[in-house]
Design a protein around this nucleic acid. Sequence first.
RNA 1: GGCGGGGUAGCUCAGCUGGUUAGAGCGCAGGACUCAUAAUCCUGAGGUCGUGAGUUCAAGUCUCACUCCCGCUACCA
Length: 570
Amino acid sequence: MSRILITSALPYINGVKHLGNLAGSMLPADVYARFQRLRGNDVLYICATDEHGTPAELAASQAGVDVQSYCDEQHEIQKTAGEGFSLSFDYFGRTSHPHTARLTQHFADVLEAKGLLAETLEHQVFSIDDDRFLPDRYVEGTCPHCDFERARGDQCDSCGRLLEPTDLKQPYSKISGSKNLEVRETKHLHLKQTTMEPRIRDWVDASTEWPSLAKSIAYKWLDEGLRDRAITRDLKWGVPVTHNGEPREGFENKVFYVWFDAPIGYIGATAEWADQTGGNWESWWRTDKGADDVTYVQFMGKDNVAFHTVSFPATILGSDEPWKSVDKLKAFNWLTWYGGKFSTSENRGVFMDQALEIMPGDYWRWYLTANAPEGSDAQFTWEHFQSLINKDLADVLGNYVNRILRFNKARFDAVVPAGGEWGEHEDWLAGEMESRLSAAAEYFEAMEARKAAAEVRSIWALGNEYLTRAEPWTKFKADPDAAAIGVRTALNFMAVMARIAQPIIPVSAATILDALGIDDTDRSWPTGDSKSLLTAMPEGKSVEPPEVLFKKIESEDIEAWTERFGGTAD
RNA sequence: GGCGGGGUAGCUCAGCUGGUUAGAGCGCAGGACUCAUAAUCCUGAGGUCGUGAGUUCAAGUCUCACUCCCGCUACCA
């Protein structure tokens, strides 16, 4: 039994996430976690809401509530949405929890003791009417290069050039529109990533289990040369900047930068889990306290890779303390909406809560796994969604379950029939099953979402193919025993089909296993001798057909959803 | 501008260190079957692998140039 620590990138607190966020971190992490549990491994899957930073403050102020209440509410909403998608977090925590604050302050103290922090004076745009410093992209104005009137302070969306806020002509606050801006001095703490660069490079070199997307992004940053990075911000909401337990002088109105504390939130959320369950969080995170046998796997979108391969490791490695660092890292591209971006304001795209209003979580889980944005960005379209759901879930899997259970009810009184001899068709099925099951397991193990789903699907298809060969409906007329072996084998195989479906569509798989009366103890990933697997169910056992498993998506549905959520390219 | 990823059948995508007639699913065409959610099974037709050059006995796979899409570019997260 292995111990596997899994984290998925923390969803930001600012509103319900869209399907792309789900598809690129939380869902694949969940599929992997479920697979590993089915294999009998000791899994700890941790996630949390990422609650600090400017957008949270602004969203709260826009909603007219204090930040804490806003985050409390949004955390519950996201937690509920996650449950709707059957995300099996062992704990879904919050970066605003005191554990993360304490750990963040601890890391800062340790890094400072190692000489890796420096105070520097910066110049930053201050909005007098908003009474706050503005991050570069919250300053807008006219681009000095192309005269685009709504260029951001970091980059012009029109001509693509990189900018400084002070480059902008007629700058204004994006928050209030106020032009009453000035540049003020402000002091910040920098993490000396430059000092850390050789150690981080060695560590990246030694990380063999990263996919090329992750490695190339890490090397891109290293090759360009790391820069020291500010880890504090002029905000009220966040982890207070302290020094050895006391407010740090000159930093009374500042907090740590959200990207400094967010990854530490993985550890903090594990400590929250320990509070709730009596578990030992250090045995997962401290290699001096039992975590040396832990395999740590991270899931994230490509935009997060640099933070996980460079910034967070700088914190971890720089501390010189025995913290667990990532072993395997799975990065995803984007799910796009008809090739474009998801956008709330432009009514383009489906968000997690809305998705659950129109279709059960399993439908989305299947689609987003089978169409995961792995090699490149993947397009969401309603037509594609419809095709995968109807064909894979309703026709190949759902119809199989329905056809065999109903035939069995009509001809064998809804019990697993006795009689008949194991023969060539059963040999064929057992042989196919054996090689394909191991292929599927390898894909799940390798976190190859699309390939795992495709392999699971082709195993489902084996069931239908077997029935074509065994044709119990024909044999029944002359020789019910010959039909019985076919039905019995098909029922046993259905259990296998459902067991391997559990990582991706847990609710539907459970419905099938319940219908077959399979004990919880017999729901693990199927291994061992194929013939044993195909003869496991006791004869005479009662098996009732469930309600139709998957409702098909009709063209009228597509029309209605296109109307509601948008569904055309730009 | 720099960097990263991608451009492979009508559609969505596989194709590892270069090696026989380039694969899968969907869609389409034909056939089989009738237990089943007009489901299933079988067979087949579809591709000058973004463009142009080059290296090689051999290139979708390596090199160079060009082109289109997406992302990142360190103060959004």
